[in-house]
């Protein structure tokens, strides 16, 4: 029974992980930028939701779309006015500049929000129900459902909408994108904005499920990284699946080996995946 409970916890947690990986994978796949500020954006989304809730009294789940919109604007501006300046530079430079941005965001957050722990704590945060003896926390379930809905939305955007086709065309070939009649600067900014919006939602949910500090970004970036690699960059649902794999693996590791091994497990999995299928290109939009 304990095992089943652990598996359920892992799967539910994995949905949130998948959502974290989703924005990372989208930006990576389309822009070929490994965004080391992704975790910091998740953190920022978390604080945005927190202040919408505590400051304005907006229910966190209602605040999520507002936070997402805010994060979209921030993401759009970051790409349009900063990252677009260097996108044709070496890969190392995009790593470096996004790392620099993550440092800036982290310490701005420390100045603005202080280093104290914050939890988004609505009245129903502890609510749960039981199915066949298995406890299911309501908020975790909601996070899981939201992750799938957003994965579906991303899939629909990329495959069914004109703007999505433009994004995919840009990912394939910048010149081709110009022929498509779109301005790649705008497409890049839109894509990064969407990635930031997804990070924002993930951050809000993260803030409800655990707690926020300005420094969680680095760990979350690393986690999103691993998930994007395991899930691949081409299919949003596979990214969620990648999140679930990590969620379950972490829960099992923490049960059988102890919590120290959580990080060893996710990175061990990562290395195995990379070494086993090195030839397969992840970048296929």
């Amino acid at each position: 029974m304990l095992l089943v409970q652990i598996l359920v916890n892992g799967v539910l947690l994995g949905g949130l992980y998948g959502l974290m990986g989703l924005g990372m994978a989208l930006v990576w796949g389309v822009l070929n930028v490994v965004n080391l500020a992704h975790g910091a954006l998740i953190m920022l989304g978390g604080y945005l939701t927190y202040y919408l809730f505590t400051g304005l009294g907006i229910d966190p789940f209602v605040a999520l779309p507002i936070a997402a919109l805010g994060m979209f604007v921030i993401g759009y501006c970051l790409q349009r006015f900063i990252l677009n300046l260097i996108v044709r530079s070496a890969m190392l430079n995009t790593l470096l500049i996004t790392f620099g941005l993550s440092v800036v965001i982290t310490y701005l957050a420390q100045l603005l929000f202080s280093a104290d722990f914050r939890t988004i704590n609505p009245t129903y945060s502890g609510a749960n129900f039981a199915v066949a003896g298995i406890t299911i926390p309501v908020v975790s379930l909601a996070a899981f459902v939201i992750a799938f809905v957003l994965a579906g939305a991303v899939w629909w955007l990329l495959n069914e909408m004109t703007i999505g086709r433009a994004i995919r065309a840009t990912a394939q070939n910048l010149t081709a994108a110009r022929l498509y009649g779109v301005d790649p600067r705008n497409i890049y900014a839109l894509t990064f904005g969407i990635g930031a919006a997804l990070a924002g939602v993930a951050g809000g949910l993260f803030g409800i499920l655990t707690h926020l500090t300005p420094y969680v970004g680095a760990t979350l970036t690393a986690k999103s990284f691993v998930i994007a690699i395991i899930g691949g960059l081409s299919n949003p649902f596979k990214v969620i699946l990648g999140g679930i794999v990590i969620g379950v693996a972490e829960q099992l590791a923490s049960l059988y080996l102890g919590p120290t091994y959580i990080d060893v497990i996710s990175f061990g999995l990562l290395v195995v995946v990379l070494v086993v299928r090195p030839a397969r290109s992840l970048r296929a939009a």
Binding site: F225, V226, D263, G268, V271, L274, V275, P278
Partner: peptide, 25 residues
Amino acid sequence: IPILRLRGPYFAIATLGLAAATGAL
């Protein structure tokens, strides 16, 4: 020997978790 078979960002990422994992061990 195994990890240097990976190229570009894949190598970078594969090495990323190494320190944390070794530290935990």
